[in-house]
């Protein structure tokens, strides 16, 4: 009996150690928060266009009854990583023919307009979320974040942080393939 009891601390320590080893797995990002929106209908929101920009505004109605999956990208001109991401999104629109919607998060209209003029505007529609309320509806934790929304308005995927770098792009493209927005296997 005493013999078995004496082993208990070791056994507990081993179980803890197993969890720690799992926790150190390099793919795990302790800061990453899963979204509750996945497989759920996109949230209700209705955003006006950025003042002074011709691109129309964005609301939930624009995310349903599309022919294929669409990308919703949350961006802001004050967000440095958004600049890095911008070219990659533009390329996806130009080269892969994907449809890209934008939510301009807590950004002054004039800053956003200037930013888009400088870097190009790949967005089909952009909603201006000055108050950040739509951001809450989307469960936003930072900028940039990018969502893939299915043709029926279901949120299929969420990417936190800029889609920059080979690994991130590969992950995003894989999600696009799974959503059916890109033909499979194209990305090697």
């Amino acid at each position: 009996m005493g013999r078995i009891l004496a082993f208990i601390p070791l056994a507990i320590a081993a179980v803890f150690g197993g969890f720690f080893l799992w926790g150190l797995n390099p793919d795990r990002d302790p800061n990453n928060i899963p979204s509750v929106l996945i497989s759920q209908p996109a949230p209700q929101f209705d955003l006006a266009a950025i003042e002074g920009l011709e691109t129309p505004g964005l609301s939930r109605a624009d995310l349903v009854d599309n022919a294929g999956p669409v990308i919703v990208n949350v961006f802001a001109s004050w967000c440095v990583p958004c600049r890095a991401e911008h070219g990659i999104l533009t390329q996806m629109v130009e080269k892969d023919g994907l449809r890209l919607f934008g939510i301009n998060y807590k950004d002054k209209p004039e800053d956003a307009t200037k930013w888009l003029a400088e870097l190009g505007n790949p967005y089909e529609r952009i909603g201006s979320d000055l108050s950040g309320r739509a951001g809450i509806e989307w469960g936003l934790s930072g900028v940039p974040e990018t969502f893939i929304v299915g043709p029926d308005g279901t949120v299929l995927f969420r990417y936190v942080g800029p889609v920059v770098g080979d690994e991130a792009i590969a992950r995003f493209r894989e999600a696009l393939e799974q959503a059916g927005a890109l033909p499979r296997g194209q990305n090697g």
């Binding site: 990002d29 800061n31 990583p81 934790s141 930072g142 936190v160 800029p162």
Partner: peptide, 12 residues
């Protein structure tokens, strides 16, 4: 990863 951190900080 670094970018994400920058992004988070920018929200402050």
């Amino acid at each position: 990863m670094r970018h994400v951190i920058i992004a988070l900080f920018l929200l402050l």
